[in-house]
Amino acid sequence: MSNDMTASRPKETVIIWFLKIITGLLVIFLLFIHFVVNHYLAPSGLLTYTDVVQYYRNPVVPIMEGIFLAVVVSHSLIGLRGIILDLHPSKNLMRSVDWLLGLIGVAAVFYGLWLLRTIAAKG
């Protein structure tokens, strides 16, 4: 294995590794709820605008979906970071990647919360 040992490689820390496992298990749990309520408990499976607005009048729904969004976005971006780390990026590149992924995560969650509020407000 050829390797320049001039600088240490950036790695996934134990905290992030553990967060990936915890969020992964949470995604399974929340995805199950997301599926059951969206396709079985919701009237006719949320396939019309009217049904969606009606369904989101229950405040538990946007809260649950908001938490699910934050967890699933975290898990996907931590995973994407791990894939990028496997390509042995330089420390400088990884700093930019971390900023970019953080920005994408925050933007995705804020966008989702805005959308949840917009739908809930129409009910």
């Binding site: 969004l69 959308l115 739908i119």
Partner: peptide
């Protein structure tokens, strides 16, 4: 599957903006 699901997640979030455009 991780890459595919990540792609789907952001696609899913994006297309649901249709909900803000009305019925």
């Amino acid at each position: 599957t991780a890459l595919g699901l990540t792609f789907y997640l952001f696609l899913h979030l994006g297309v649901l903006s249709q909900l803000s455009q009305g019925p």
